[in-house]
Design a protein around this nucleic acid. Structure first.
Lengths: 196, 196
DNA sequence: TTTTTAATGGAACACTCGTTCATTATACAA
DNA sequence: TTGTATAATGAACGAGTGTTCCATTAAAAA
């Protein structure tokens, strides 16, 4: 038999994800990636096929990792609502610094990509964001069952409301990353508007 | 004397703005622009200097036009609050289709550009967004004076809250452009959360 | 130890990028 | 009508793009 790849596939995807997340799809060149992940074109193309496919795997990796964070938050408390609140706090506050961007990579991609030029990648990003929203809806449905949220509320509507708030806050954080302001808005998500 | 420029400068900037707005800074090439505005490189560079400067003039043009829309909304009613509501409805609902993007060009730019690669353009975009927020704060201050909003509210905080909502909604609209959903969220901006 | 097979390195490709510049066209002043 | 100043043209430049190719390398199987 033959030689086996000496690099760690996940580690490579992780580094690619960090680059794409920070610089965007168009802002990241294959040479940027080659340097960041320390692989020559031959290896990258043998493993991932194309810039587009590497981006696709990266954004999927990002979505998986974010999903894991959400699962961990839910596991930390027995309350779905508290788990969800914890998740939002983690996303919005803890991502303010240190990460490639305080914005969500999926949202950045949906903002940057177009149907005309990158339909497949855009559709993938939209799908991943819809998955998150569905997960939110499940959690909220559970919270309604447990009486944590009034039973006349619509889980799907609240889920999309949460999405709007997270998207808005994480994007706004790029301009004003004042922790007190952001924290205040996070707290108000659940005590304001459609929840009461 | 000499030959005089035969193209309309504003018309050219308008076309450039539409292209940049839709495809983003990195997604728009000078060749794209040359075709869209029907000018050869020589003329473009003689008039605007560089891709970066044309982008800068474009985003400023976009901000000016948006400012005019806001002024018109305020002029339509004697109530600052109603004027502001009208503006948000216009931005979020009427931009759902037909425009280069349902998203705000300034927000798209802040999302796409980085300090490392395009600091000057990013700073310009941040400044323009801050200007909008200041204008919101002025309007809300006026609304408080007129008793349209409770006098214990902080105008600056409400202004940034409005920003978060508009950013969130216009971005979310790229994934779910259902008019009823969006419209519901727009209405809830003022009846929910920090306003009550 | 030899054979086999795939991973690796990195030069090179065709193309596109932002930009420049010598040339040509045009409108006005003299 | 001619001279002059400036706008418009478009070929061309060097650098950078995503990608291909293949000789070389290395490790597992025979």
């Amino acid at each position: 038999m033959s030689k086996v790849a000496k690099f760690d596939r996940e580690e490579v995807i992780q580094k690619a994800t960090n680059l794409y997340w920070g610089k965007g799809y168009h802002g990241t060149s294959m040479r940027n990636l080659q340097t960041a992940i320390d692989l020559r074109p031959g290896s990258i193309y043998a493993t991932f096929g194309s810039k587009d496919n590497l981006f696709k795997e990266s954004i999927q990796y990002y979505a998986n990792k974010t999903g894991e964070v959400l699962e961990n938050c839910l596991a930390e408390t027995s309350s779905p609502l508290e788990g969800l609140k914890l998740f939002i706090r983690k996303l919005v506050i803890e991502n303010l610094e240190g990460k490639p961007s305080c914005m969500c990579m999926i949202v950045k991609s949906i903002s940057e990509l177009t149907d005309a030029d990158n339909k497949e990648l855009l559709d993938e990003a939209k799908l991943l964001l819809a998955n998150v929203e569905n997960k939110f809806a499940e959690i909220i449905t559970e919270a309604i069952k447990l009486g944590e949220i009034a039973s006349d509320k619509d889980a799907k509507e609240l889920a999309s409301y949460i999405q709007v708030q997270i998207i808005g806050l994480r994007t706004y954080a790029r301009v004003n990353s004042n922790v007190e302001t952001i924290n205040k808005f996070v707290n108000e998500i659940f005590i304001g508007s459609p929840f009461h």
